[in-house]
Design a protein around this nucleic acid. Sequence first.
RNA 1: GCGGGUGUGGCGGAACUGGCAGACGCGCUAGACUUAGGAUCUAGUGGGAGACCGUGCAGGUUCGAUUCCUGUCACCCGCACCA
Length: 806
Amino acid sequence: MSELYNHKVVEKKWQKVWEENKAFAATNDFTKPKYYALVEFPYPSGQGLHVGHPRPYTALDIVARKRRMQGYNVLYPMGWDAFGLPTENYAIKNKIHPKIVTKNNVARFKEQLQALGYSFDWDREINTTDPNYYKWTQWIFLKLFKAGLAYKMEMPINWCTSCKVGLANEEVVNGVCERCGSEVVRKVKSQWMLKITEYAQKLIDDLDSVDYIEKVKVSQKNWIGRSEGAEVDFKLKDKDETLRIYTTRPDTLFGATYMVVSPEHPIIDKYKSEISNWEDIVAYREMASKKSDFERTELSKDKTGVEIKGITAINPVNGKEIPVWISDYVLMTYGTGAIMAVPAHDDRDWEFAKKFNLPLIQVVGKEGESVDINEAAFTDVATGVLMNSDFLNGLEVKEAKKKIIEFLEEKKIGTRKVNFKLRDWVFSRQRYWGEPIPLVKCDKCGFVPIDESELPLELPEVDSYMPTDNGESPLAAMESWVNTTCPCCGGAAKRETDTMPQWAGSSWYFLRYTDPTNNEALASKEALEYWLPVDWYNGGMEHTTLHLLYSRFWHKFLYDNGIVPTKEPYQKRTSHGMILGENGEKMSKSRGNVVNPDDIVNDYGADTLRTYEMFIGAFDLSASWSEDGVKGCRRFLDRVWKLQDILSDGDEYSQDMVTKMHQTIKKVSFDFENLKYNTAIAAMMSLINEFYKKNSVTKGEFKTLLTLLNPVAPHITEELWQTVGYEGMIYQTAWPEYDEEKTVESTIEIAVQINGKTKVTVQIDKDAEKEAVIDMAKKALGDKLTGTVVKEIYVPGRIVNIVVKN
RNA sequence: GCGGGUGUGGCGGAACUGGCAGACGCGCUAGACUUAGGAUCUAGUGGGAGACCGUGCAGGUUCGAUUCCUGUCACCCGCACCA
């Protein structure tokens, strides 16, 4: 009898061997075929690893290990996205330097990850807070700055009242701070911005060239929010001024009955003296500006607004005079901050018009049907046909759009225009624990980049990391650091004291892994040429419109500047589902349903945890934790372990197992590539059930099983490999091959149906002819077959269906 | 409101380009071995006594539908006055 499976001994033993042998280090042999597998590097929080982390890590570890067995030079790296608010807040509270906090958290995370037996190449470990790393983050920023893609601007930002920091739109969730849940208000601040909008079109177009799961592509496209329409100039009555609007429905121009400008629109101040109800306007603007974005959207779907008395616009196509209103349903940040309102064909305008009793003019109808625009706006572009619109009458919407734009362009009163919802990226934070922005402000020269040779511009030691109430970064209080000389004119100047957001370091980290210690460049040309693009990148859906989009933007910028060789950073992107608590709710301390991975590793072993997390369900869907499920996976590994007791000689597969073996290899190989880890494991479970049914497994069969299972459960398989005495180490073994022909049994069982309902089954030869099969089927049916046979269907290898009529 | 997703036994979940629904695991039942078993092993396990009925619901296409089509309901996740 074999000894009992002791996961603690086995796992420690092999982790040590792998580490000593640098078993999973990617080589610099650039002639070998490469494979770059990537998982999102974690933020090393004080809580340590969560059971959610191992799910994607194990999935790609399986892929990485399999690829190595298939002969690839594999890069599967890990690092730390370590700048960020929780660390800083913890540092403030406990009066420990964030550097120390980070160091401790990283040590803990690393230990936990190593205990799980991942085949990460730890020689390439990176840390975004390491000056040797953020030197290059700053370097990229300077490139962006020099290219005119970084600019500073006074703008209303999302201000978290608790973190005392500006947030990107992406970081505001339901009107509250994504991190701390506190209220977010609008505050005007001068902020560094990155012109991601410059890349909006490319970010959409190039999605066609990559293999991302569909929902990621769709969300990115929606987030970027491209729309096609026209800008049209409306002349203001008795003034030498036009008001420009943006519309996606220029075909409805004849139906415009009023206009609306956003409360911040400059036209209002410009004609202040001519506005007779100025006080009402001011009051309205004040009310609107006090609302946070949250209130402006969620809480006040009810339209509000005030007519601007004293300004009248003229519809350029029919000369009609129409009033101009001010309302916060029009946003200054999109389009031109002004719209033409066509209440008959736009839901929002309709609602507004109803509330303020503004006229409706129907200009689109339906062929042969009447449409009541007093009931609701008619917005169907697919079936709409123009009416009451002069030269557009009778045209379908699509045609009418084309024609009106031609008309507007010819008359020089409008033009075709594409707009995006995407806004520029608010890039500065008034915080300590981030990369310093390497710029100097000189009264004479403006913002001047520091010389590249000065990089990295390191974070200075400060007395307090506390954010300040006036919104300045803690760095601003460091006079000795702030005061410097201008790199341009040599005069007295001050450093920029804002730091970069957490997304900076993660926007290019995958490049650094290819050459993590390079001091001359962010990575060598050769390394980038060889390793890029990342072949498979897995990460959370929550990063689709943040990290994933930001890093694609940076990468495209670097590509345009000849620094990286590929247009896109990631060839393939997949996403994992969340792991929920036993009760089906999100794991959280307050719900008391948190599972600590350390406990699972301790009680059942890393291999069990890995197997379980892969077996838990479809990889891309969320799944609830189940301790019983964990036990089941442990039982499976125990049964694999005990196969050594029924091991028989023979390097071949035994006669009756050939088909099953080949089927299993095929299934596992396929499933590992297609995120179907759960069914791959099920197939292996089913295989060992066969062994136990026969009470025997040959050495050849066992060897194949161990190899297939190795990527999932690397420790136990390595141990068994050694115990049985197979050659070398299992991780260096070749991935098993299968023979397609041998995956099919010579005799197969097929179902026999009458009118589509299964009655009996028969055994047939896999190559049997239709007539023979039908004959057998009829015989097997016996007296169950009554009535007249109308049709006989045989789907080879599948089914016989006899259609009868009674 | 818009976009995406999911509905299958007691539970987690399987099912190739339409072809024996419920693989695999959990749980449960019975038995074996045991001083004992919350260990292990063996057998059984969608419902119904049955012909039959069963994949959210209602239709449709088909010899045949979890799979395709039309409509509808529920839940989950994004986005949200983007003109």
